[in-house]
Design a protein around this nucleic acid. Sequence first.
DNA 1: ATGTGC
Length: 486
Amino acid sequence: MTTPAALKRIADTIWELPMSYKEGMLVPARIFASEKLVKEMDAGVFEQVCNVATLPGIQRYAYCMPDGHWGYGFPIGGLAAMDPGSGVISPGGIGFDINCGMRLVLTNLSAEEVLPRLHHLVDRLFARIPTGVGCHGFVKLKQDEFRQVAEQGSRWCLKHAYATHEDLEMTEEGGCFSGADASDVSVKAVERGFNQLGTLGSGNHYCEIQVVQPHNIMDAERAEAFGLTMVPNQVVIMFHCGSRGFGHQVATDYLKLFLGVMERKYGIKIRDRELACAPFHSPEGQSYFSAMKCAVNMAFANRQVILHRIREVFSDVFHKSPEELAMRMVYDVAHNTAKLERHTVNGRVKELLVHRKGSTRAFGPGAQGIPKCYDKTGQPVIIGGSMETGSYLLAGMSSGADAFFTTAHGSGRTMSRHEAKKQFRGDKLQHDMEQRGIYVRTDSFGGLAEEAGAAYKDIDEVVLTTELAGLSKRVARLVPIGNIKG
DNA sequence: ATGTGC
């Protein structure tokens, strides 16, 4: 790959494209990457991050995280903060899978206790958690009940005995973005979504059994605060899923609406249709913001009911209650959202609309809006690698202020799904992984091939880069032993 | 990512 000649190295892990790079840029573009990662980035990333820099109201820089790759309009691994007064909201800056996110759950079991029952455990998870495209959820709802889920998120789960108070505390925003009004969501979106509560989905969505090996703990103090030091080789559960067809339909509906009004009604000219947007304070912008929150809340509720079922499965397999197994949440992080947050710009505290697309909020120690128990450590940041190579738990840092306290979200793809399918075979991959101690169940070998570790960047390099850039600090590396995926 | 594509 060739990087643009105008790309300047600002620091070891910070690269910049100046405003002169592309006509209409309102701010420079900044890319967090090591030299190796920046060279691996596709040319599309540099074009896209500079396109984002032309959007009205953008503050400081258009950003790309070390796991960044080409996406719809904005790069995946993108971050753009807008002035809500003069700026826009853009569905492409949030993504189709609204609030796709990661949840990490503890157990007090050791790998030695789990391994003899691993196959049974993974088979039971696979049997009890619906996976794959078009799967139906285990929570049966009428459409009006689903609208309540969309407005209430995890709070709905608490009322219906799928959650504990502590689960809500350990979820961003308590598992509910306020201001979600289901009347802003189309009938079609509800029709697609109402039978999807309690589904994992497909693509890179998975549920994984992982081990915290003592030699993989990088920050002992934070590891203890996050609950990872109960037993040596402690087993934890990490899972990744989002708002399914519901969020997809919300994004589709509003992209279409915005394309109709953006230029004709608001006079906004954009170089790429995929950057469709509307002024944040316009009726269309506010309506999308509300509908997006409905999808955010559906995704929080989806992860919450899945957690409920994971607890049931562990309870059945190990003949102990979830409390006896200490199945507490470490945290739940959202990847694809826009949020109003207060940040310091030019020495003044200002409210900004922060678009994160394939990037993670990473508030540091003492930040408002994170659980009290994490006040000294910073918020937990859960970064999933590929199913072959392992994942990380990190913590937000005060030094992340320049990037509006945001970090990476995963490994980032190095090849398209199509290319990965050509290069790898799912059945062979499953066999090879089992030889290496990772038991995988899937209902799509094609889908499995797309997720091969070799189709992703080096997760160790990505998280090290976030640490060197001051965005987040590594706490522990988590090694997979079992995985179910769609 | 997605009842996987105009």
